[in-house]
């Protein structure tokens, strides 16, 4: 299994907003543990899905040259369950970004194919750190280990590969 918690990017306004979707499927092993006989998408993985959406948005702002690390979940609420067959939508916006990091916020929505309506089920506020600019001054390896093949695959599948830097690993 790959650590990919979004399936496709459906909207992208560079520097401002990214929207991504995830289809929840019974083929996902983890749902059978969470919980046996009653599969529910874990809230922690929805937060990860939001983080991947917002992280790509923040990374794209600097052409994926900065290493963008989730540094803080300032707030996260998820008020309803998501079950297999339903679809999740993460809508993330940048509140503020500078050389040290970015603050983002947005919503988590759920769609059930039986009625096709999107319902807001959660809200998230998240901070990302540009770790090469971290306050502690610790040096990190040059290779950009954050935006690896998985992220490139999502962007390529979403027709957004034009936003990938030609040489994402170098400065």
């Amino acid at each position: 299994m790959r650590w990919m918690w979004i399936d496709a990017v459906t909207a992208f306004e560079p520097g401002h907003r990214m929207v991504a979707v995830k289809n929840v499927s019974l083929a996902e092993d983890h749902l059978h543990q969470h919980f046996p006989g009653r599969p529910i998408m874990p809230g922690s993985l929805m937060i990860e899905g939001f983080a991947q959406t917002a992280g790509i948005l923040v990374g794209a702002t600097e052409g994926f040259r900065e290493k963008v690390i989730l540094a803080k979940i300032a707030r996260a609420t998820i008020e309803q369950d998501v079950v297999p067959g339903q679809c999740i939508r993460y809508d993330a916006s940048i509140e503020r970004i500078d050389s040290a990091g970015a603050s983002t916020r947005g919503t988590i929505e759920r769609m059930d194919h039986r009625d096709g309506a999107w319902v807001r089920i959660g809200e998230v506020e998240m901070m990302f750190s540009h770790i090469d600019q971290n306050r502690a001054g610790v040096a990190f390896p040059e290779e950009n280990f954050v935006f690896g093949e998985n992220f490139r695959a999502i962007l390529q599948a979403s027709g957004l590969d034009r936003f990938l830097a030609k040489e994402p690993h170098g400065r």
């Binding site: 509140e95 603050s103 901070m127």
Partner: peptide, 14 residues
């Protein structure tokens, strides 16, 4: 913690 300083800064701005 260290990231909180950036958070505080951004929130004061807003």
């Amino acid at each position: 913690e260290s990231i909180d300083y950036l958070d505080i800064m951004f929130r004061l701005e807003k």
